[in-house]
Computed example of a mutant assay.
Amino acid sequence: MSNFTTTVTEFLLMGFSDTRELQILYSLLFFLIYSAGLMGNLLIVIVTTFDRRLHTPMYFFLRNLSIVDACFISITIPQASVNCLVNNRAISVTGCATQVFLMVFISYVEFTLLTVMACDRYVAICHPLLYPVIMSPQVCVHMTVTCLFTGLLFAGFHTGYTFRLSFCQSNVIHQFFCDIPSLLKISCSETFSNMLSLLASALAIGGGCFVFITASYINIFSTVLKFPVKEDQRKAFSTCIPHIIVVSLFLISSSYVHLQPPSDSGSTKDIILSIFYCIVAPFLNPIIYSLRNKQIKEALRIIIKRKLSLKE
């Protein structure tokens, strides 16, 4: 049969809707949400960079997370919105491979950064006297570089392992961006080893990080509840609750997208869940941290006052 098949040179992505008017409406709506999410994350980067009081390990990792979220939200939505507006669903094999690599890389870095942030909160609350030594600037930089380097290896392996497959039966991806589960669905090669490697990676990386985060917060909560002063308990919880909410959002949305195989027809449910994973979670992260963090709000007020005074 392989002698009569043609190798795929480009893929066709799904749109947000089959109706032209709804395509334009959804594209504009998602682009507005994307713009707001991008500005929110960049605002946290600016605030935590220019306010010296926020030059601590906690805000160093928060700044890195905001940079990752800004990249995450920029990989799929802008191109998908433009494609719907110009009514063009085609994406080259190279462009698809690039998108897969970036999605896997950013997802990996985001999850490992959230794990490192849980470690930071654990040391700060459970071992406060050792905190400056354990979480020194050098250690924080090494942790971040490790997340990036291992993320490159992880994304490179899974991207290469996916695109070694042949795509000759269909070039229609039942998703509005390129992702590995959708590509495996349309491959005409044997994909059992690919699915096995994805499952093993999810259990090893995802499961390991989840266990570490859970264990960290069990120890944190048990320590905080022993604080004699209620105000100290409140302050400790206020630094942990935003992180817990962000981790929950990322885990729930990513689990729904990657652990549920895409349907053959590209259902609306698959599209909605993927939109939540790609845009809603990164969009909400800066809002969650800003609303729950008095230091960020105060730093933002100071920066705005400085800008206004310079204009006057």
Rank of each mutant, 00 (worst) to 15 (best):
A90M: 01
I67V: 14
M103F: 04
I77M: 09
I205Q: 09
I304S: 02
L129I: 08
Y26T: 05
G151S: 05
I287S: 03
G95I: 03
T49C: 07
I77P: 08
S27D: 08
S265C: 09
I44F: 01
T112Q: 02
Q79Y: 08
H158I: 05
Y256M: 15
K305S: 13
F192H: 14
T162N: 08
N64A: 03
C119Q: 13
L251E: 10
A80V: 08
S263Y: 02
A118R: 01
R292M: 12
S274N: 03
L152K: 00
L42H: 05
I220S: 04
L259H: 09
V257G: 02
S74M: 07
I303Y: 02
M135H: 08
S66M: 15
V109Y: 10
T214F: 13
A97M: 13
I186T: 14
V145P: 05
P137A: 11
I75V: 15
F210Y: 07
T223R: 14
V86R: 09
R292V: 00
S263G: 15
K294Q: 13
K230N: 07
T9K: 15
K230Q: 10
V224H: 00
L13F: 12
N88C: 09
Y289F: 15
K235Q: 12
V45H: 02
C278P: 00
S238E: 10
M117D: 00
V68H: 01
G266K: 10
I272F: 13
V133F: 05
V45D: 08
S255H: 08
A281T: 14
S201C: 11
L251G: 04
C188D: 11
Y122K: 11
E190F: 00
G207L: 03
T191L: 00
I173P: 12
R164H: 13
G160I: 10
A97S: 15
P137Q: 08
R121K: 14
S255K: 03
I275V: 14
R234W: 08
I303G: 01
T162F: 05
I244N: 07
L22Q: 13
G208T: 06
T49R: 14
V172P: 00
G15Q: 01
F16H: 00
G156M: 06
V45R: 03
I304W: 03
L22W: 15
C178T: 02
G95S: 07
T146Y: 07
E10G: 03
Y277N: 07
I67T: 08
Q233H: 03
T5L: 12
F105D: 05
A97H: 05
Q233G: 06
I186C: 05
Y289P: 00
K305N: 11
L310H: 09
S35C: 12
T48Y: 04
A204Q: 04
L199G: 07
I218P: 06
Q175L: 11
T5K: 15
